[in-house]
Every structure is written in C-alpha cells, then in structure tokens.
C-alpha cells in the first residue's frame, strides 16, 4: 500500500505544471501506469480522492488511469512476449536473458483544465 505516497508525488508535479502554465484549477489528471509498476489503480484513485480534495487547485478533480501492458524482450531470440503471462522466462526459447521493455511506467500523461 504505497499509493498514497505516489499520490503526493503526483500532486507535487501537477502543482508545478499548473504554476508553469498559469492554471488556477485542474479538472482531471491522466496517468500512464504500467501493468507491473506495483501501483494498484483502484487504490491510487481512492488515495487521490482523499488527498486531492485537500488542495484548492485539485478539488473535485478526477484521476484517470491508462494501463500500459507489460512487454518483455528476449535477448537471445529477440522476440517480445507478455510479461504478466510468462514472467522472466521467454516462452519461445526458454531463455532467462530477458528484460522489460514497457510496463513499469508511473507517468503523468496530461492534465485537463476547464
């Protein structure tokens, strides 16, 4: 359960972006969250509601989550596969010389203002 800590980082970055763009109220924040980033979207939106409503800039704002599917690349056969289904071992050649290409993101994609 570290989603509240993550929410505090999002709020800090959104405040900074709002100041740079001279925005006085944010109505929505869109996140790109990787499937294996260890962030649980439901917990994140719950924590967001609690913390964002305490900030004038973010009162009533919605946090939307885009899930980025996790993809692993095999260093031996150079093929890509679904990380969540097969884990560290390549399903094509059974190599463990593999690394994550996508799926670890915790990124603020965009903010919405009215």
């Amino acid at each position: 359960m570290h989603e509240l800590g993550i929410v505090f980082y999002i709020i800090r970055d959104v405040k900074q972006a709002a100041a740079e763009h001279h925005v006085s109220h944010v109505s929505g924040v869109v996140m790109d969250i990787g499937e294996v980033s260890t962030v649980v979207p439901e917990y994140l939106t719950d924590c967001w509601r609690w913390a964002a409503d305490k900030e004038e800039l973010l009162q009533g704002s919605a946090l939307k989550v885009n899930t980025i599917p996790a993809v692993t690349l095999c260093g031996d056969c150079r093929r890509e596969y679904e990380t969540v289904r097969y884990g560290k071992t390549c399903p094509h050649c059974h190599s463990e010389n593999t690394w994550l290409l996508r799926g670890n993101e915790v990124e603020i994609k965009e903010i919405e203002v009215q």
Partner: peptide
C-alpha cells in the same frame, strides 16, 4: 460547459527524485 483544455506533461513521477 467550458471546453476542456489538455496540457501534455509526459513526466515520470520518479524523475525529480532521481
């Protein structure tokens, strides 16, 4: 209702900490 304006951020929340 006012039109929604989107501001692209594209920033990892870990970037500042790193």
């Amino acid at each position: 209702m006012d039109e929604v304006k989107v501001i692209e951020i594209k920033k990892s929340i870990f970037a500042d900490n790193e």
